[in-house]
Write a protein that binds this DNA or RNA. Structure first.
Lengths: 146, 146
DNA sequence: AATAAAACCTCTAGTCACTGTAGGTTCAAG
DNA sequence: CTTGAACCTACAGTGACTAGAGGTTTTATT
């Protein structure tokens, strides 16, 4: 009878104790049994589910996506088209982010290369930041989750 | 004599009215003069500063970075080494994020390519999410600001 | 068995960079 | 002079955690 404490579960899987409690709060991890003193005691099923969540997060899936993916795993005999769609949509998002970062990278490189390392008054970095017309690319707005 | 309303300033520069008020709140934009009826009236200097902020944000600089950059522009006769350092550090951050996104991209591609489009029970996407050992790369944790 | 330290508990607030809403006031056009 | 758009302040919410306060339980050592 594996009865993991929350600290053990966290250490085993490389996350913080608070993160596990958070996933329980938002309903991603089912509430585990409790000890006589009200401390959480996890089974291997919990550990599996936690690993799924953590790994999906590492691959950039949102909590909302993961919620859906977990729901789909509870329907093992259904076709996996929905899973694939979710993953494909996420892949597209990742690619959009990469494109934006690439545009940023190019502009940052460009401005650093043009800087003469003199005074701030004549600094190319400052000039470019002050005027988008000096940019070579159309870089969109910044955005979250890399 | 140019006396821009907040709505005009926002429209001219492609941001939201609230964003401008927010930048004032946190001390990035100086409080402008007010009309008799207490509405904000901006000068071209405000517009310039706002564009600097917005453009820096587009290039992925944090508000903290921008605060520093703005402080440096107020010292035009100083050497621009600090500016360059900030930009270089940011470039490094951008590259780290790109590398992480690239790892994600590879794994997502791989799992989608291996999926047989059968049932969830045997879906490669689900399998990989459940077990990091099935990954080809060491992809670190996700993270913010793309 | 007693003690002390480490780990656990709940609850709340903070992070970042905004965005949205409520409830009220002012401005510009007709 | 009226209407409606734009403005005002103040506060709550977003995502995905993270950190802290203040108190309880477990575990290890003596």
């Amino acid at each position: 009878m594996s009865a993991l404490s929350i600290g053990r579960l966290a250490a085993d899987n490389g996350c913080k104790v608070q993160t596990i409690r958070y996933y329980e709060d938002i309903g991603l991890l089912p509430p585990p049994a409790r000890s006589d003193g009200n401390q959480r005691r996890y089974t291997r099923a919990h550990a599996r589910r936690l690993r799924f969540i953590l790994h999906s997060r590492e691959l950039g899936f949102s909590i909302a996506d993961i919620r859906q993916l977990l729901a789909l795993t509870d329907q093992p005999q259904q076709p996996c088209a929905e899973v694939d769609e979710l993953a494909a949509a996420h892949l597209a998002t990742v690619r959009r982010r990469m494109a934006r970062l690439q545009a940023m990278e190019q502009e940052l490189e460009r401005m650093l290369n043009h800087c003469q390392h003199g005074e701030v008054r004549e600094c190319r970095v400052i000039d470019v930041l002050a005027d988008h017309a000096l940019c070579a690319t159309e870089h969109g707005p910044a955005q979250a989750e890399g």
